[in-house]
Design a protein around this nucleic acid. Structure first.
Lengths: 235, 235, 235, 235
DNA sequence: AATGAATGAGAGTTCATTCAT
DNA sequence: CATGAATGAACTCTCATTCAT
């Protein structure tokens, strides 16, 4: 998110901004890595190409990141997990209704994450997670869990404030997450799902809005188990 | 005999026996390949491991399939594209209402494809399609297009019989496909999306049913463009 | 030469000639092998292709010939070394002058060997001999030595009969051999030596005749050392 | 660190040191390649052995040359085609008679090319050209054509200056080339043509001289078609 | 006798990672 | 700090040869 969170030093720099700052290196590498990981996946991305795209040599990459896996982790931290404290801060500061909060979060998420290159990381982990257990574990801890927690907090807030019916949390969290994940997949897989010819025109914002509406219809007020979709006549 | 250290001079001393001999080999290889492709993806699956899992040697694999890509294509043909004629036959034979047909198809699909290893192929193509253009093209032609066509036929039947409102087909096809794709993803990505701990309990059949209900609510009777989700208040 | 010299059995056959005789197998294999060895060289010729071209299976090839090297040896025996007894018989029977004998032999050689596929074997040995020491040795013994011996006998006859000046045999033999080898090379290397465009029109018979003339001019009568080309003003 | 048994997980424990670092590498590799190509031919030369002989690892070879075929082309450029501009320059500078020029060129050629390892390349192309069409084409363009052109220029000079009779160029070029090619073959095929025992003592310089003399006798002054050896009584 | 399925060593090539400069 | 030359394990695919049938 913020491109100002660089691992190494971050001292006051000469104001000459047109000069390639040495301290910008890791940032450039992370940007290049994000591009390529999203484009080709983890295994198929070659370290050398990341370096080249960042304008440095192969050796330099390994100067900043101990391995390709560490590079990936840094990309995830920089672009995803780093944002959760902000998300949580906004949660604490928000004082509207919980349905509004959900709508707001979803919209924000789409702007910041879903609609950005980062969302390719989700697809990547889905596809390659099993092959790189260490990365999968890391992603679990750094992304999945915080995300689940955050969603859980939001939903719990709704329950606590009497806005939502009591929920089977495991299920409910997932129901919120599902359309988000799906949307990311869509955005990054046009070639595999559609004829380029009839390239789809699904409007993500509308898709999200409609999904939320279903969701909220299920969550709000009514008791029982709407989220689990059992006997959910409204849907 | 020749003391030449050159290419074709063989020096096999203890040749470990031929295991057996069969016409079941292609089938065994295809099964092993399906397993591994689904488990690891295309690039990360090693030809030799496919062979070993099928109980044969590396060379034997290439006796039956000219290359790893051909092996993959054969897996797709065997497990997916081969089934479309059956699907189409069932379409022709069905004489209930189109909503029933959709429900029936979805249920059948889940049994036969979605709930089977094959569904991992969808995930695979989503993740690696870009890296293997020839496979992507093949998959387009052998799977995506027939699937789109079939769904389109079903929807058109509904329209023709006055069961469905007129549809923007591109959109509508996709709306049917989306939950199917998503479900396949879920099934094959537990590790990347959930704590193994709180391994989800989403019941696929119920998920599909609920999605269908939404869908049908949108498709049936009412005119307008509900499928495109624009101004769709009901949803 | 004579296609009737098959390793295995050679009993009286049913006169039905349109039936593939079992005993013809080795002959068919040898013919196919000669074709392919000449076309592609030894190493690049695949056993399976030889078998296929002979209309049998890979296994059958190894039933008749213990290895690819043995197959090659058989080809050489069948097509080259087998002929030396005939050559020598003709030598013994000939009663003209030695220059005439040389001319006669050369012409015969061209008809029988130089102008036939076999001559590709010479090129093959030249190119691959070093890589297959056992074959090189075999070829030495079966072809080179007998050929040298034969030429030597002819030249010696000329000397003994007072037709030729005394000769440095090593040199002289070689001088006879050289144009023959060269011609074989030519015949089998059109693509590497000439533009296909200006494909040469060298007439082999004329080339040989002229070379012989030079040669005989050097050999006949005059003392000195014309064959060694030292101070040979006439040439 | 990751216990993944998957593709890019390196497990190098005792990495044997970098030997050294240089810009001499390409040269060393080319030298090693020339040696081995000449010794074994193209197909039978293993990339790894080239590397080892140059004192580097397999990977390093491919750092400098994209493929074995490119390596071969580089060898040819380095050792053969690169020299034609020099040849042509010498042609332009020469101001003696054309017969002298021919003698001079031949002598020079022997020193520089014929008598060097490079001449093995000619043999190699003769033997393997058909199996590597791309290399054959390259050799055609880079070597055969320039060589033909050069010889043609020389002969044409003789004709233009009234030293040579009018010539059928196609034939004449070839007549000059033939002994050169033959000599190269000889030099690189001792084992296949002679007993190592009676290893020949042909003196290449003398062979060339005598061939030239024949040639010049045919070319000079006398009209008609001496080069084609038709009715050439002098020879 | 004949088949052709099966084997497995080995070839060319790639790429994450190291280290001398 | 930065470089990029060097490494070598790993991968796909080939083919002479064997052997169950």
């Amino acid at each position: 998110m913020s491109p100002a969170k660089l691992p190494p030093t971050a001292k006051t720099q000469p104001p000459i901004r047109h000069e390639r700052r040495k301290d910008a290196r890791p940032g450039e590498l992370l940007a290049a890595a994000l591009d390529l990981f999203v484009e080709k996946g983890f295994a198929a991305t070659r370290a050398e190409e990341v370096a080249r795209r960042a304008g440095v040599s192969k050796g330099t990459l390994f100067l900043y990141f101990a391995s390709k896996e560490e590079l990936f982790k840094a990309v995830v931290r920089e672009n995803i997990s780093g944002g959760f404290s902000q998300w949580n801060a906004q949660f604490d500061a928000f004082d509207g209704s919980t349905p509004d909060m959900l709508r707001h979060c979803m919209a924000l998420w789409w702007q910041r994450q879903g609609n950005a290159k980062v969302s390719g990381i989700t697809k990547l982990m889905l596809g390659e997670g099993k092959n790189f257990p260490e990365l999968a574990l890391f992603y679990q801890q750094e992304v999945i869990q915080p995300a689940h927690l955050l969603i859980r907090r939001i939903l719990q807030r709704g329950v606590d404030r009497g806005e939502f019916a009591p929920l089977d949390m495991k299920y409910a969290v997932f129901t919120v997450l599902a359309p988000m994940i799906f949307l990311q997949l869509l955005v990054h897989s046009n070639n595999a799902c559609y004829d380029p010819a009839e390239a789809t025109e699904l409007v993500p914002e509308e898709y999200l809005a409609s999904q939320l509406q279903i969701l909220l219809a299920g969550l709000c007020l009514r008791p029982a188990t709407p989220v689990t979709n059992k006997g959910n006549h409204c849907l």
